[in-house]
């Protein structure tokens, strides 16, 4: 089970003044069960990239394989693919439309051709998985707070039982508390539902603590692809393209420069703390 992108190119509005080469020769392999972060500046092509993964955008050239099958083959069931590769857009709460939250979450499974009962069961599980309190389920989605609406929207995709869940900037516009809650929820879903999760973000802090693999996009190309500590080691190059490593990386490099022998590749607060304490102990002995 995997998604393979083979030399994918995408050109917007070819042949007009607005022509833009949004993706340049992208080749990637996304393995089952991975937790991936895609990072990039606005306009780096990350949103375009993820829309290729469920066939919403058709590559100008190149091929995409889902579980070994070419999704551009004639007769390939794209609608089914979209159930397997669930895509949650930016500000997903803007797509809510039903009279109650529960009905809205049922929309996806119903489109998959499930019966009312089955759809409701899926919706039930999905709303549970995003941690939305049961007393809200039969209210209008428009009465909720921003963070809650977003949970409902994520549940709407989750209810289709995707094998891969892609979230485009799931924390955009949320306050720090809402942001942490959503991210923790995503981590829990990855662990408990055993699904592949792809998290798109422009904030290093968001993804550094969670993902196992980090893909950095710049100008339509993959700039770095590896585990976060490897990627953050290039923090100067990241800065050159308008991104930044997590605060921790800077702190550790500064400490190192001032003579404390800490581990610069620490990416999370916990690791940093442990490393600093260790260095201090060594120093005081």
């Amino acid at each position: 089970m995997s998604i393979i992108l083979d030399h994918v190119n995408y050109v917007y509005s070819a042949g007009t003044a607005y022509e833009k080469h949004a993706l340049k020769d992208i080749s990637l392999k996304i393995e089952d069960g991975q937790f991936i972060g895609i990072i990039g500046h606005t306009g780096s092509g990350k949103s375009t990239l993820i829309q290729h993964l469920n066939g919403l955008i058709r590559a100008t050239s190149g091929a995409i394989y889902y579980n070994g099958e070419d999704i551009y083959d004639k007769g390939y069931p794209l609608q089914k693919l979209r159930g397997k590769v669930g895509l949650v857009f930016q500000y997903p709460e803007h797509q809510l439309f039903e009279t109650t939250i529960f009905k809205d979450v049922c929309f996806g499974p119903k489109n998959q051709g499930l019966s009312q009962n089955e759809a409701e069961l899926k919706a039930f599980e999905a709303l549970r998985a995003v941690g939305l309190s049961e007393r809200l389920w039969y209210q209008s989605p428009f009465d909720l707070s921003g963070g809650q609406k977003r949970r409902v929207a994520i549940a709407g995709v989750l209810a289709m039982k995707p094998e891969v869940l892609i979230l485009d900037e799931p924390t955009a516009g949320l306050d720090p508390k809402g942001r942490d809650e959503i991210l923790d929820q995503v981590v829990r879903m990855h662990r408990e539902l055993h699904i592949t999760v792809i998290l798109v973000s422009h904030s290093m802090e968001d993804v550094a603590n969670y993902v196992g693999r980090l893909i950095v996009m710049n100008r339509g190309q993959v700039m770095f692809d590896g585990v976060p500590r490897e990627v953050f080691a290039h923090y100067q190059e990241l800065e050159a393209v308008g991104l930044s490593a997590p605060q921790v990386t800077y702190l550790m490099h500064d400490l190192r420069r001032r003579g404390l022998s800490v581990d610069e590749s620490a990416t999370t607060l916990e690791e940093a703390k442990a490393s600093i304490l260790r260095a201090l102990q060594v120093g005081s002995k």
Binding site: Q51, N54, L56, Q79, R82, G83, G86, L87, V88, F89, P92, H94, Q95, F107, G108, N111, Q112, G156, V157, M160
Partner: peptide, 13 residues
């Protein structure tokens, strides 16, 4: 366009 895509992603036709 955006809403359409989002609903297509949820299986809308």
């Amino acid at each position: 366009d955006k809403i359409m895509k989002a609903q297509i992603a949820r299986g809308a036709d």
